[in-house]
Design a protein around this nucleic acid. Structure first.
Length: 306
RNA sequence: GGGUAGGUGGUCGAGUGGUUAAUGGCACCAGACUGUAAAUCUGGCCGUGAGAGCGUACGUUGGUUCGAAUCCAACCCUACCCA
């Protein structure tokens, strides 16, 4: 029998953190984050990272793992997360995956294998530059079609990142994306994932998001961004984070303070919507009501654990 | 009180007699998603209908015209300037 692993997902501000910590306490569990931004050091307030007090002594993995100057990836995430799962299981404890990054969650629950390849940054830059013009992008798309007709068909001719990816994979492995994806799903999934998504009516969720952004500002998000900018020279991916990029706009004078704050709220709401769309597609996912009493939800999860 | 500019769909903003339910952007809704993913991309978006269509819409009322968001008149409102 495969070991059970609990997975808690849900849109931002749905209450994943508090539920998961309480759950960990009741199941002798430890938490593995599946959040693409909480993994970065020094990005605390804006990524809604749990504080030491909030953690209540529950061990958390994959939080504060990498510097904002580093480039992170799903492949790297998958590797580290599985290592953490093993470590927790070895202790006889329950692994609990918690986070809102659907891509990262999928890498685990579908057991996707990523081969070891290095990113050719120069090549990517070259492609990115070319993709800046409409004609350049069209040309890249045509190249992608030649290499991997099927993969190109599935994406839009405007989808820069995915067009580049098709070319990149071929460039560094000689394989097509389609081929690589087929190989990535060969192995059987090693764990028995029990997946739950916290949800609630959209309007209530949006209110919670708005309120949380205000709290982040009160807690000093602006200061946090300032010191980040001072401390690190570059941010290959970390500055994509909602709440950070907007404050940067404010600090460099492009936006007013209120404008930036409203933008953070709006982007967060839109993000939550995309997250929900993602989670709807996960088969075997169980939806739990974020407005219900926490203990009721925990009981639902506990029941399935035995 | 006088002058000027203007009032367009949830919002911003094009459109100045017919091919206009009305370009765009944004919001919103729905969707996609395998190495940057809090990223990137796609579709829908007045109502009704499966659809052709029908109904209702460009401040209000009335007029000109075969035909008006577009022209005219009066009125209401907004912004700025003068008093």
């Amino acid at each position: 029998m495969k070991p059970k692993v609990i997975v808690i997902v849900g849109p931002t501000a749905s209450g994943k953190t508090s539920l998961s910590i309480e759950l960990a306490k009741q199941t002798n569990g430890e938490i593995i984050s599946s959040d693409s931004m909480q993994i970065y050091k020094d990005m605390n307030i804006g990524s809604a990272k749990p504080t030491i007090e909030e953690m209540q002594g529950i061990k958390h993995y994959l939080i504060d793992e990498v510097l904002p100057t580093e480039r992170f990836s799903v492949a790297e995430y998958k590797k580290r997360a599985e290592k953490a799962i093993e470590e927790i299981l070895k202790k006889g404890k329950t692994p609990i995956i918690v986070g809102g990054t659907g891509l990262y969650v999928n890498s685990l629950i579908y057991g996707i294998e990523y081969e070891d390849i290095n990113l050719d940054e120069k090549y990517r830059e070259k492609l990115m530059k070319k993709a800046e013009t409409q004609s350049g992008l069209e040309e890249l798309y045509r190249e992608a079609q030649k290499i991997d007709e099927l993969a190109a068909q599935k994406i839009s001719p405007n989808d820069k990142k995915r067009i580049i990816r098709i070319l990149e994979i071929y460039h560094s492995t000689g394989k097509t994306k389609t081929m690589q994806e087929l190989e990535s799903r060969k192995n059987e999934v090693k764990y028995d994932y029990k997946i739950y998504c916290i949800n609630m009516p959209r309007d209530i969720l949006y209110e919670r998001i708005n309120k949380r952004v205000d709290i982040m500002i009160e807690q000093g998000l602006i200061e946090e961004v300032k010191s980040l900018l001072k401390k690190y020279p570059s941010f290959p991916t970390a500055m994509q984070a909602i709440g950070y990029k907007e404050i940067v706009q404010y600090l460099n004078g492009s936006w007013g303070r209120l404008e930036a704050i409203d933008k953070i709220k709006q982007e967060s709401r839109r993000y939550a919507k995309r997250q929900i769309t993602w989670f709807k597609r996960i088969e075997n996912i169980k939806w739990i009501d974020g407005l219900d009493k926490m203990q009721n939800n925990i009981n639902i999860i506990l029941e399935e654990l035995h």
